[in-house]
């Protein structure tokens, strides 16, 4: 049952991430803004899910491992940073790394603290 719930969450999370990065890339802007957005939002939601005392295991599998895990990504983040370095945009790459870490971990902590119970 658990793997099916993980798959169900992932079937929503991955296309939603594609949608957000495509929207962020409109007008020739950097799609990394979209990656940052989904990573921070997914980290906040997972903090809420895991911080709540009474979250059922099925919800953790569906919303946590499946949806949040797949909405967010680390490989695209790493690829974005390498691309920025190759384009000699070092300040932008460093700002992107710091934003992902500070906002991502901060959002997870906020979700964790704000969770009921």
């Amino acid at each position: 049952m658990t793997p099916l719930l993980v798959v169900a969450g992932a079937l929503v999370g991955a296309p939603l991430r594609l949608l957000v990065t495509r929207l962020a890339a409109r007008g020739g802007r950097d799609p990394a803004g979209g990656t940052l957005t989904v990573n921070v939002a997914g980290s906040a939601l997972l903090g809420l899910v895991l911080g709540a005392a009474a979250t059922p295991p099925a919800v953790v599998a569906l919303v946590g491992t499946g949806f949040c895990g797949t909405l967010t990504t680390f490989s695209t983040f790493g690829g974005d940073v390498v691309r920025m370095v190759e384009q000699r945009r070092l300040a932008r790459g460093l700002a992107y790394v710091l934003a992902t870490v500070v906002l991502g971990v901060g959002a997870a902590a906020l979700g964790y603290v704000a969770a009921p119970g």
């Binding site: 992932a10 999370g13 991955a14 991430r17 594609l18 990065t21 990573n39 997914g42 980290s43 939601l45 997972l46 903090g47 895991l50 946590g64 491992t65 949040c68 895990g69 797949t70 909405l71 967010t72 990504t73 680390f74 490989s75 695209t76 983040f77 690829g79 992902t100 991502g104 971990v105 959002a107 997870a108 902590a109 964790y112």
Partner: peptide, 19 residues
């Protein structure tokens, strides 16, 4: 890239585990 590797890796678990 978007699907398999994007779904295999995760930022949310990383962030929550750091917390």
């Amino acid at each position: 890239a978007v699907g398999v590797l994007g779904g295999y890796t995760t930022c949310s678990a990383f962030a929550v585990e750091a917390v």
